[in-house]
């Protein structure tokens, strides 16, 4: 699905990613954990194509294509989806209009016709149920005035609508109440198939109780310093990052 090799990225002259290696196959769930500021969101932004970062070294192959050569929109059209840690508000653009445009541009990219209005609305109905998103929210402006939890739910609703191959969920659990966490996690699990893959970025085991990862990686100072199975997350939850920090302290 995606293969990241020795990825280095910086902003200005500050290097944030210092050689990331990660291989995710179809059907897998990977969790990325790590202390604040270690570069988790930067990794997802770089993969999604945010232009603020310079990729200085390394390569990323996504379904056989050189991901770094693609524009942000083409990455999405190829099936990459990023659920933002901080979804932004876009006043004046309705969720529905936004999603219809997105869906149809993705379809056009794959040589498919526009989706009929009726089918689109049926899809909206079906997918909003999946994350129990209030139908009213779908017709409002993108994230405008949404509560923190509603914004996160809306991200997963969009994911359900666009049906990506690889979804990167950047702290989708933060800000969700206990019920919402379960609803969102159940939604993500329902969207899971042998043909797609998920990377969940999180600080907490409780999300991983629902979305059970095949692999867990610890990101620290721009590198994956430790990888393991789902038990690694439990270990980190119990012990914290002190050991890791000591072991991998790098002089800046």
């Amino acid at each position: 699905m995606i293969s990241i090799k020795n990825l280095h990225a910086s902003i200005g002259d500050k290097e944030i990613l210092r050689g990331i290696n990660l291989e995710v196959k179809a059907g897998e769930i990977h969790a990325i954990m790590g202390p604040n500021g270690s570069g988790k969101s930067t990794l997802s932004s770089v993969l999604a194509g945010r232009e603020d970062y310079d990729v200085t070294e390394g390569e990323v192959t996504f379904n056989g294509k050189n991901l770094l050569d693609l524009s942000t929109e083409d990455r999405a059209r190829e099936g990459l989806f990023l659920a933002f840690q901080y979804p932004i508000e876009i006043p004046g653009v309705s969720n529905i209009n936004f999603l219809r445009t997105a869906l149809n541009e993705i379809r056009a990219y794959h040589g498919q016709e526009e989706m009929a209005a009726k089918d689109f609305l049926a899809l909206v109905k079906e997918k909003s149920k999946l994350v129990e998103l209030d139908a009213k929210l779908a017709s409002r402006s993108v994230n405008e005035g949404f509560s923190g939890g509603e914004k996160k739910r809306n991200e997963i609703f969009q994911m359900a609508m666009l049906n990506p191959k690889l979804a990167i969920l950047d702290e989708t659990d933060s800000g969700l109440d206990i019920d919402a966490l379960r609803i969102v996690a159940t939604g993500v699990n329902k969207l899971k198939s042998k043909d797609n893959a998920t990377i969940v970025i999180t600080h907490y085991q409780r999300l991983l109780d629902y979305i059970v990862p095949d692999f867990v990686h610890i990101l620290y100072k721009g590198r994956i310093v430790k990888s393991g199975g789902k038990e690694l997350a439990l270990e980190m939850e119990a012990k914290g990052y002190d050991e890791i920090k000591k072991e991998f302290e790098i002089a800046d």
Partner: peptide
């Protein structure tokens, strides 16, 4: 134009052109 909003729209598969148009229309709508 708000580059964060532009990035958000593009990250959902919307091309640069239409993303700009969506944002400008939203700006003018009221």
């Amino acid at each position: 134009i708000d580059t964060e909003a532009l990035f958000y729209l593009k990250a959902r598969g919307i091309g640069e052109e239409s993303a700009r148009k969506l944002l400008l229309q939203a700006f003018a709508q009221e």
